[in-house]
Amino acid sequence: MGEQSELRLGGKGGQGLILAGIILAEAAIRDGKNSVQSQSYGPEARGGASRAEVIIGDEEIDYPKVSRPGVLLVMSQEACDKFAGDLERGGVLIADSTYVHTIPEVDGVVYKLPISLAAREEVGKEMVANVVALGVMARITGVVSRQALTEALLARIPRGTGELNRKALDLGWEMAEKILH
């Protein structure tokens, strides 16, 4: 079994995290890798706890769930409280500081960025916060290439929203760029 990157995206239903997980998994395939995406959600279409998981690797992926994510994105305080303890040693935790105010002690690197706020103020739609988050994650972790991510994103979104989504992705990428340097 080769190296695998295990990612978990946690937040509330309606934040588009499952779609974000799908786009990540598709981007990985475009990069020529293997990937699986799974999810868990409450029965409510909006507002309940939501979790998407993605595993990316070069070889066959057997167990499809993530127990110790190397990359953890949290977009709600509840998700942060629930999942921070699962972070793999030396892993990366990305928190949307719009909604996550306190982060427990973790053995890894924590990046705090106002993802939803930026989506709202700079793209004009908080709805695309998930896409901003994708840009942030890709830039910080390098699990997928920027080109593959862009292609995967544009193939999944509704017609006519290409520009908006591209803008959101670029915004995420730049926010990460700033925090890294």
Binding site: I22, A25, I29, N34, S35, V36, Q37, S38, Q39, I61, P64, K65
Partner: peptide
């Protein structure tokens, strides 16, 4: 449910 909702390559 795992296989029904699992997405993979």
């Amino acid at each position: 449910e795992v296989i029904g909702h699992l997405r993979e390559k």
